[in-house]
Design a binder for these strands. Structure first.
Length: 421
RNA sequence: GUGGGCGUAGCUCAGUCGGUAGAGCUCAGGAUUGUGAUUCCUGCGGUCGAGGGUUCGAUCCCCUUCGCCCACCCCA
């Protein structure tokens, strides 16, 4: 009988890994709360229509990557491929966007049916941040500055690069799109295969093409910024002024095009070359039209999402995780001899509640030697040893496991004082 | 969806020019009485991914299939 395995591209997170995730998540949530952002939690499943209307009908995500299925009543449901649309839906549904501002964040699994590879999975996890009701570029700057801070706290700032671009307003962009298609259609027989396909599906992505010939043809192509109105130009100029003023280095990448339809004006990406093909570790942008598009009264929005798997991969690659992450206990209690276990339970409880220590208590008895081995392997700094001698005298032996200090007999009542220093 | 690489003990891998397999780590026990991480000894542990074919005989050769990994595409 074949063993049942996890679904391809959907990974279990084992103990050695979960501690790393928690480390990252704690730093992120702490930073966000210091900026006054509030957590929001949405369902994992939404009506399929939500994603069709937000991400765009002809994007790869909607066309071939969604986990879509029929509910028992015939409704078409989809496992969320991204969080922004869900967040907008939830905020709008509960009136959070009516004449007010919001700074929100969320965290959780997303699903896309792609071929798995390094840094790309079918169930992956994002930490997303979305702001509503702010029109100006100052909030864009706040978001970018926040991520900049995060990289510094994690110790990876030197390994990521900020790229920014402006896509203009939807109408400006679609005017450019038409002009681009007209221009490129004359070279149709010279373009690479993917670009020809994109001519129909997603012309902006052609700017991204890896084909040299295509890039050469693009040199004479219309330029997006020429289609911008005053407001778009101003917004982007003010944003770069903020970044300059804050001393945040960036590269303006005119080829930077995000894959989702709803972006307008500013888009940005944090990229690294340390992860192979999947170098984008955090990305986002402004989506002023999305709320209205999904049926709301309308509210400007900006946000970004980080890929948790990719970040953890990067932190591992750069070896910036603290070493002691896998140490699960401060103290290991060794109890040898008849009648010592009850005392061990009591002492363990005492050390946990009054000493705020992480305490592992030996289970299953075993020889003194094997208990000491387990104490060592736990990574605990101290072994607290209880034998019949100690029980008789209300003491315990405290043996340091991480240093050469002598072990010491300590009164049970003085244990915390002795260990917590 | 398209390429390429790989599947041998729980983990990391070696190996057999075809005669049903080995090391290190892990785990358990021991090197005298209640002391770990070093060292030494012993032990536990494998339908050699699955199915079929060739052969006296296949883990090794051939075919199929499944799984994993990397890349394209796309994206966090």
């Amino acid at each position: 009988m074949a063993k049942i395995q996890a679904i391809r591209g959907m990974n279990d997170l084992l103990p050695g890994q979960s501690s790393k995730w928690q480390y990252l998540e704690n730093i992120v949530s702490d930073l966000l709360s210091k900026h006054g952002y509030q957590e929001i939690r949405m369902p994992i499943v939404e009506q399929t229509e939500l994603f069709k209307r937000s991400i765009g009908e002809v994007t790869d995500i909607v066309e071939k990557e969604m986990y879509t299925f029929e509910d028992r009543n015939g409704d078409s449901l989809t496992l969320r491929p991204e969080g922004t649309a869900c967040c907008v839906r939830a905020a709008e549904q509960h009136g959070l966007l009516f004449n007010q501002t919001q700074r929100l964040w969320y965290q959780g699994p997303m699903f896309r049916h792609e071929r798995p590879q390094k840094g790309r999975y079918r169930q992956f996890h994002q930490i997303g941040v979305e702001c509503f009701g702010f029109e100006g570029p100052d909030i864009d700057a706040e978001l970018i500055a926040l991520t900049d801070q995060l990289w510094k706290k994690l110790g990876i700032r030197d390994s990521v690069e900020l790229q920014i671009n402006s896509l203009g307003l939807p109408e400006e962009r679609s005017a450019f799109k038409s002009a681009l298609v007209v221009y490129l259609s004359d070279f149709k027989d010279q373009l690479d295969e993917d670009s020809v396909r994109r001519l129909d599906t997603n012309p902006l992505r052609i700017l991204d093409s890896k084909s040299e010939l295509t890039q050469k043809i693009l040199e004479q192509a219309p330029v997006l910024t020429d289609f911008f109105g005053e407001d778009s130009k101003k917004h982007f100029a003010e944003l770069t002024a903020f970044l300059d003023g804050l001393g945040i280095r960036y590269v303006v990448n005119p080829k930077l095009v995000r894959g989702l339809d709803y972006y307008s004006n500013m888009v940005f990406e944090w990229v690294t070359d340390a992860l192979g093909a999947q170098g984008t570790v955090c990305a986002g942008g402004r989506y002023d039209g999305l709320v209205k598009q999904l049926g709301g009264k309308g509210s400007p929005g900006v946000g970004f999402a980080m890929g948790v798997e990719r970040l953890v991969l990067l932190l591992e690659e750069l070896k910036v995780f603290p070493e002691e992450l896998d140490v699960v206990a401060d103290v290991y209690i060794v109890a040898a001899g008849d009648g010592t276990q009850i005392k061990a339970f009591e002492l363990a409880g005492h050390l946990r509640s009054k000493g705020a220590l992480r305490v592992l208590q030996n289970m299953g008895q075993g020889s003194f030697k094997s208990q000491m081995k387990k104490a060592d392997k736990s990574g605990a700094r101290y072994a607290v040893i209880l034998g019949s001698n100690e029980i008789d005298t209300d003491t315990a032996l405290v043996k340091p496991l991480k240093s050469d200090e002598e072990q010491k007999s300590v009164a049970q009542s003085d244990l915390i004082k002795y260990i917590v220093v």
